[in-house]
Design a protein around this nucleic acid. Sequence first.
DNA 1: CGATATTTGATATGATCCATAACAATTATC
DNA 2: GATAATTGTTATGGATCATATCAAATATCG
Lengths: 177, 177
Amino acid sequence: MTVSRTAEKSSEKPSDATKSRKDAAGGQSQGPAEALQLGELSEQLGYVLKRAQLKVFENFLRCMASLQLTPAQFSVLLLVEKNPGRNQTEIASTLGILRPNFVAMLDNLESRDLCARIRSTNDRRSHILVLTDKGKAVLTRAKKLVATKHESRLNDLLGQANREALLEMLSKIANEF
Amino acid sequence: MTVSRTAEKSSEKPSDATKSRKDAAGGQSQGPAEALQLGELSEQLGYVLKRAQLKVFENFLRCMASLQLTPAQFSVLLLVEKNPGRNQTEIASTLGILRPNFVAMLDNLESRDLCARIRSTNDRRSHILVLTDKGKAVLTRAKKLVATKHESRLNDLLGQANREALLEMLSKIANEF
DNA sequence: CGATATTTGATATGATCCATAACAATTATC
DNA sequence: GATAATTGTTATGGATCATATCAAATATCG
């Protein structure tokens, strides 16, 4: 599955090949050039899952445009807030981020004064992560934006009950597949 | 949200910071270094969605190891099979692949003799895409592998009814979010 | 204690994926 | 027939992801 944006349906029988769709239809050329059939693709879990994920991330970025937070950055802030006093390795690995790749992410957040690295007094190798005051404020605003503009759309689209069922199923897949 | 593998829960109250978790617990050092709290992260649609998607792709690759097909390649073969006679632009755009990026993908599939580019007799700019005999055979085997080893796990995990509900909700998100 | 192994954050580097600009050949438009 | 648009392609840059390696600090164990 490849997945990204566009995707519609249609109906039309396969034809010869070596003849483009346009001409196969009639004689010359024009018309909206009928959409392709997705076929079994629309039944493939991975395909639909990826398309949905892209749409959701896309929407997330739009909602967070004013705060300039990516999904990954938001997750870091959330996790640091809930787990103060943890070091880079712990935060990164919990999020599935490899330590080397986490360095630049933190450099970014730290340069924007959203979080800070503090040398641990107990283990001077490690950096304890904390949210700055600005970081806390931004995270608070981010949560509100996500709740009102992003997550709320799920309820509008699926309904509260379905929303919860969906999250539960996805969690199950994430943890047990 | 960042998302990838590991993720468990636990319960523990936040503490001082500048003290690593290890020592905050008692005095010296050891123990499994308690897992972090995901907190609101596990309620974030994007986070759970991405984690689930990664798991599913991971499993897909394992199931397809013998055929050496990625999800993207599989989707191309499926779409070409259902829509013979289409050109690169049509196939690529339906899958959300940008034309420039589709070239290398096709080079790969063509070098493995799974599909072929045929110059259209009507529009000599475009390449009509077709599956080769080998491509058809491989796709047939791929479908079986996916059905028996991959998609079947969803039924085992969620049950038939839930599986269908999940796909429907994801499609709705992909198309209407 | 002291030698060795491990851990932590960091750097360098490469692979893969995604996006844009530009180009030649061909076709469409007017 | 001149100009615009389309198709496949190349080149290129950014973002994400993964691995090896390193110095500093700590842990381990004889």
